[in-house]
Design a protein around this nucleic acid. Structure first.
Lengths: 294, 294
DNA sequence: CATAGGCATACCGAAAACGTATGGGTTGGC
DNA sequence: GCCAACCCATACGTTTTCGGTATGCCTATG
């Protein structure tokens, strides 16, 4: 069974004439006639009644026609769908993000992606430091917004932006009068920490403090940036967060940079090398645009 | 787009291996590999990720797979359906019948056909003398039970049985004492005629009467054999009908043959020459069986 | 009776597919 | 750490099949 034969058959059936169909198919009439007869031979039954004024479908031909044209349409749709997915016009993109980025990036990234990738099913998945690699490698996540990047031979990384670490404190705090805070001033002050020390942001913070030989007792570990800021506002302690966290911060919170350090933490997009696709590229464009305006 | 390529693709996708698929397709591995790559080239996008342990579908490949296997199934179903119809296992048979045969033949023919042609859609259509030829030629009717046969170059005829003409009268009529009635005894008696002189049964009757130079005034023209017999029972007149009409006749009606004529009227099956099919043959078998037992 | 329209057949050149032989890369065992 | 096994890709020669041109046959039409 050859799809071409079916295509020929459908053309002849619709035109009710070998000659007309040959014209439509941009081919000569005799080979088309031969193909139709071959199809009939393969079937063991005539599909057409040959009259002096063209061809007319038999019952068997009628039965074949409906299925054949459906099959043709399906095949066509299949290759179109595959092309559309390959070209990034359609498909599915599972975007992973680390929770520190959620409040700052997602509200602008989601609409941006929905606008620039119509026809693409978007999923957004929160990642933790312990699962992000596995999810990427298993393709449960197509691309991940990480902070900082993942390093793995199978995973490709594009830096999208950097974020300085900043100090979040109540606006009424004396430290808030400074435009930049010396790290040493943090010594002994209570720290509202992000969850689980393995979290990259958390570990970047503790590495920075250790480097400056500053000790801050951890008074609370919270799950979200929003919770952290609420506790800061309540006077429970200070938080050290990427600058982007100041978006979505409630009024009454002051963010200040540090005077003596230029510690930044990178925002990176990570994806499987073999999953590289136009979809990923479109995602990068959108993500860069959003991150640039943080 | 070639259906073979799709078939190959589906095999590889299902086996997740070129080698395994080649085995299943009874072909060597290299040409299959080539065909897959050609399909990918035609699409402009990879359908598989080549790993060291076989092939793995990409998103585009997944999208193609579902449609392609559906299309394959449809094509297969199409040729199977066409074959089934051509072989008479399935299809549609529109059986035409002339109304004089309805009461005698249909009650036994219909169940017989339904039994011997399962899977075939049966339609039963009453024919009139004026439309039967047209309906056959237009294929609105696949085969017609006629009385007598149709003569036309495009139409093929098979005689299924013959029916003697008989006289129908009230059982209490003096004529009913005879086991056979001389035609001359009909002279001047009132005749309950079947509708429209062009009806074959009607015209066979009038030809017979003319041949014997017997005149019977027509007192009533009725549409159905049943009506005719009711009028006979009511004493309105006599009817001359094919013997098969006595089946389904109400009690109180006597049927008698004639002494001096052997006029029979043939029951024939008629169909378009170019519609000859196993279905028609099966029909003939069933119809002969039923008519033989009239 | 001649012409035109439509499908079928015959033959030839071109393209595509299949098989065999072989190469390259990775995995896993000795 | 090397060698064998596995799997896919490439190359080349052979065969099948397809499409084009030329032509024949049949029927309807004027």
């Amino acid at each position: 069974m050859d799809l071409r034969r079916l295509r020929y058959f459908v053309a002849v059936a619709e035109e009710r004439s070998v000659g007309k169909a040959a014209e439509r198919l941009r081919m000569a009439q005799p080979p088309l006639s031969v193909q139709i007869r071959k199809l009939e031979a393969e079937l063991g039954a005539p599909l057409f009644r040959r009259g002096t004024r063209g061809m007319d479908l038999t019952e068997a031909g009628l039965a074949l026609l409906s299925r054949a044209s459906e099959a043709l349409a399906l095949a066509e749709e299949g290759i179109e769908a595959a092309r559309a997915i390959a070209s990034g016009q359609r498909g599915r993109l599972a975007v992973g993000y680390m929770f520190v980025l959620a409040s700052a990036v997602l509200p602008r990234l989601v609409p941006e992606l929905r606008r620039s990738l119509p026809g693409v099913d978007l999923d957004f998945v929160e990642l933790s430091a312990s699962t992000r690699e596995t999810l990427l490698l298993d393709r449960a996540v197509s691309v991940a917004l990480c902070m900082p990047a993942i390093h793995h031979p199978e995973i490709q990384v594009a830096q999208i932006g950097t974020q300085p670490l900043m100090l979040a404190m109540p606006a009424r705090s004396p430290l808030a009068r400074l435009s930049a805070v010396p790290v040493s001033r943090l010594q002994g002050r209570p720290l509202i920490a992000l969850p689980r020390p393995e979290e990259p942001t958390s570990s970047a913070v503790s590495a920075m403090l250790r480097r400056h030989q500053v000790v801050m007792p951890v008074v609370s570990r919270v799950e979200t940036v929003h919770s952290a800021l609420s506790l800061v506002l309540a006077g429970e302690g200070l938080a050290i967060l990427p600058a982007c966290a100041k978006l979505g911060a409630p009024p009454g919170i002051a963010f200040r940079r540090f005077v003596d350090i230029a510690d930044t933490i990178e925002i990176a997009a990570c994806w499987r090398r073999d999953s590289a696709s136009p979809l990923i590229r479109s995602f990068l464009k959108g993500a860069e645009k959003v991150v640039a305006h943080l």
